[in-house]
């Protein structure tokens, strides 16, 4: 990503973020709420046109050659709706067919994905009737169907139960081990510290730190380092009245 920037009216959401994600890395992007994580990832994946800057995926400019770049990427955007009047199975199949994949390949991959996500029993249920966690998992499956080289996942573990989260993590781990690249955004520091090998800290639309986990946390825990970088942690004094119930 090179100098990505986006303004919404008066508000500058992302203010020139440049970031190198090494191929084959498990890259975490952390930041407080409203830091511009989602906007950055939208711009990097071709869903939102940046005001300045661009993003390259394996040397292909996302905004100059969107089709070629999108072939390489699997995207799980946060906060967008799904075609939820389809069943889970139909939705994944739909995503595969939209990518121009062969029907038989799609069919076999859909079966495996449903099993991996522990959704095989609910394959025939409309996505609109899914729980929040199941919806997240089915959206993840639609991002995986075409075997992308780069996975961009925005808040993939929100509302997902621990067992499924562990399953997804092991899927992602083996994906990275075989050479794939994963970018996840999260504000669960603990998860990022355990899961990722690289991390970037974003706040107020700017990049505060980036590098391997060990470089960024510099001996402290990632959470303490994050709070230190982002600042804004108010003293724990005050709110005395909260103890006067």
């Amino acid at each position: 990503m090179r100098g990505l920037a986006k303004r919404f009216g008066e508000k500058i959401a992302v203010d020139g973020i440049s970031l190198d994600v090494p191929p084959g890395s498990f890259f975490g992007i952390v930041g407080p709420n409203g830091a511009g994580k989602t906007t950055t990832l939208f711009m990097a994946t071709g869903l939102l046109r940046p005001d300045f800057g661009t993003a390259l995926v394996h040397g292909i400019d996302v905004w100059a050659e969107p089709l070629a770049a999108k072939k390489l990427m699997g995207i799980l955007p946060d906060g967008v709706k799904l075609f939820d009047r389809l069943t889970g199975e139909q939705l994944i199949t739909y995503a595969g067919l939209l990518r121009g994949m062969d029907r038989d390949v799609v069919a076999s991959r859909v079966g495996e994905l449903l099993d991996a996500m522990d959704l095989a029993r609910d394959a025939g249920t409309l996505v609109v009737d899914y729980s929040a966690g199941m919806t997240k998992k089915i959206a993840l499956a639609t991002a995986l169907i075409h075997a992308p080289r780069l996975l961009v996942l925005d808040e993939p573990f929100e509302a997902v139960d621990p067992v499924s989260a562990a399953n997804i993590r092991s899927i992602l781990d083996s994906y990275v081990a075989s050479g794939g690249t994963v970018i996840v955004s999260s504000h669960v520091m603990d998860l990022v510290q355990r899961m990722c090998d690289h991390v970037a800290v974003v706040a107020g639309g700017r990049l505060l730190a980036a590098g391997t986990i060990d470089e960024v946390r510099a001996g402290a825990s990632l959470e303490d380092r994050f709070v230190q970088l982002v600042g804004g942690r108010s003293r724990t004094e005050g709110l005395e009245w909260l103890r006067t119930f």
């Binding site: 139909q90 199949t93 067919l97 249920t125």
Partner: peptide
């Protein structure tokens, strides 16, 4: 939220129409 569950795998029209993007 009421749930209507259907067993088994059925693709409906997605399985019938040509497997090209426009068909999907």
């Amino acid at each position: 939220a009421g749930t209507g569950k259907r067993k088994g795998s059925r693709l409906g029209l997605l399985g019938l129409l040509p497997a090209v993007p426009a068909g999907a």
